[in-house]
């Protein structure tokens, strides 16, 4: 290493800030042997900022801990990034919400189902006082703006003449209120969670369309291409079975789902 000039001496004296936006983030996967299981945020099912207090977080960590699987849940801001790490970087695993993987993408994955939750279409009543209903046909919503997370599969909406507005999950409900989107598709519990946090005094204004939008499978997937992928998938399956047979799983489920 060569000696530095005066500017670097000055800069070293300036290095007193506690954190900056081009700085280290000391996470378990950085300096330990723990492998990453990537996920996006979908409260109350997955909340990377509050990992031990969300449905999948509690289930997954209970199993990881019990089975001594050296892995951590790592939150990413975009679903496309989860896919990239899983499929291109051969990450250990990922949680399933909104990954929309193709058959060929699933080829090297071991998918372990955990639960399934209901999804519905929601709109904001003050912006649509006459109501919205899709009645199983998306064409009935033609011309409207559908708000969803970046990376979601939106082809069928486009084909139905629906405009797409992509966004972070945290602001989808806000976009309904400020009339930037007309409707969203989310798990009922996720809508309830965000409305409770962001618009608690307006709960009655968020209306669920009567026909269900579908089911969202909640699963953990392990990557066969990761050196520990198959072994950890086997261990996880065993651990999840134990959690279910011991009644712990049902307790966690009850806490978040009902």
């Amino acid at each position: 290493m060569k000696h530095v000039n005066l500017y670097f001496i000055l800069l070293a004296l300036l290095l007193s800030s506690t954190a900056n936006a081009t700085g280290p983030r000391v996470s378990p996967s950085l300096i330990s042997t723990a492998s990453d299981i990537y996920t996006i945020k979908l409260p109350p099912f997955v909340d990377p900022g509050n990992q031990y207090a969300c449905y999948l977080g509690e289930v997954v960590y209970s199993v990881l801990h019990e089975q001594k699987i050296d892995a951590v849940l790592t939150g990413l801001p975009l679903q496309s990034m989860v896919k990239y790490y899983l499929l291109n970087d051969n990450a250990l695993g990922a949680l399933s919400p909104y990954l929309h993987l193709t058959v060929s993408q699933k080829k090297d994955l071991i998918i372990i189902p955990i639960d399934t939750v209901n999804e519905s279409y929601y709109y904001y009543k003050p912006n649509h006082p006459d109501g919205l209903a899709w009645k199983g046909k998306l064409k009935r919503l033609s011309g409207l703006r559908f708000g969803t997370i970046k990376g979601d599969v939106v082809e069928k909406y486009k084909q139905a003449g629906i405009k797409i507005k992509l966004s972070r999950i945290d602001v989808l409900i806000k976009k309904l209120v400020v009339n930037e989107v007309d409707f969203v598709r989310l798990p009922d519990l996720t809508v309830a969670w965000y409305v409770g946090k962001q618009f608690a005094d307006q709960k009655d204004n968020f209306i669920k369309m009567p026909t269900p939008a579908g089911n969202l499978p909640l699963a953990i997937m392990f990557n066969k291409k990761h050196p520990q992928g198959q072994i950890n998938a086997d261990k996880f399956k065993q651990g999840l079975d134990k959690l279910k047979s011991g009644g712990q799983f049902q307790q966690i489920q009850l806490q978040y789902i009902n």
Partner: peptide, 25 residues
């Protein structure tokens, strides 16, 4: 550096300890 640690609980479980400072110097 102070403020750069995430997931303190994981490190505590693993018995990994850190000494933090406010400057690189």
């Amino acid at each position: 550096l102070e403020g750069t640690l995430t997931k303190h609980s994981y490190f505590a479980e693993q018995d990994i300890s850190f000494e933090t400072s406010y400057s690189q110097t």
